[in-house]
Design a protein around this nucleic acid. Structure first.
Lengths: 126, 126
DNA sequence: TGTTTTACTTTCAAAAAACAAGTGAATCAA
DNA sequence: TTGATTCACTTGTTTTTTGAAAGTAAAACA
């Protein structure tokens, strides 16, 4: 007899139909949006994300990248012609996160002292 | 001989001067922004946040509220005249999170099927 | 060919989250 | 005024996630 804990068939572990809650289920943690930020800044490789100043642990990076792949937020392409290494790129769904990143950058700059944008002032993001 | 791990004097545990990283240190988790959302929706009491459909555990709610207080994002006022119960309100710094919430709601509605805004369509947030 | 780089995976201790239950002050109903 | 109920937590306990370090295998480079 199968023990039904929750119906994860229709929508795997969605807490509510709220779009904010749903978004947080995808990227509601301390690292995911930093990977997105790096992608926006032009980084494409595992080692590049790992080299960011915040120092994401590689196991966390690995898990986050596969989650983003699973959610269709990033895709993998060949790093360069003939290369067997892979590069990560934002999909359209991933690029649609730009306004969120822009709003967060603006809030941080306005309210948290000592912050500086490596993201281009207004053009790149937001 | 004091072992200096990190200089937490100037800015306690800031990972980098990036405003996005800094913002994530404040509200980069699955719950905090849902409390902010509830505040935007007009909820002010502990029990109201706890009653939201996502079902935040009370110990987590408690911890998040004190963190938000510590960061000056919410403040406490008397729930009603003469009452000794307290109500939570967004400060200006907290209201400045509205564009982030709005951008997240828009992204969720656009890219995650089955989401619906209890937040007023465009007027309330964003 | 041997060395280095890349992109992970594994291990494991520590921290955080989830869950359940308890507590005491405040409010309310009789 | 007493007793029940609500409120806002706090306290255990278990489960999950992190984070730091080390290990690994394929690819690239010399």
């Amino acid at each position: 007899m199968a023990k039904r804990v929750t119906d994860k068939t229709s929508s795997p572990e969605r807490r509510s139909p709220c779009p904010v809650a749903c978004a947080l289920d995808v990227f509601g943690d301390r690292w995911t949006l930093l990977v997105i930020r790096d992608l926006v800044l032009g980084k494409t490789r595992f080692k590049d994300f790992a080299a960011s100043p915040e120092g994401i642990p590689t196991n966390v990076l690995s898990e986050r990248l596969s989650r983003l792949l699973a959610h269709g937020i990033v895709s993998q392409v060949s790093a360069s012609e003939g290369s067997k290494h892979l590069a990560y790129r934002l999909t359209e769904k991933g690029r649609a996160l730009l306004p969120i990143l822009g709003a967060m950058r603006d809030w941080g700059l306005a309210w948290e002292r000592g912050t500086r944008a490596h993201l281009g002032e207004a053009a790149t993001i937001g």
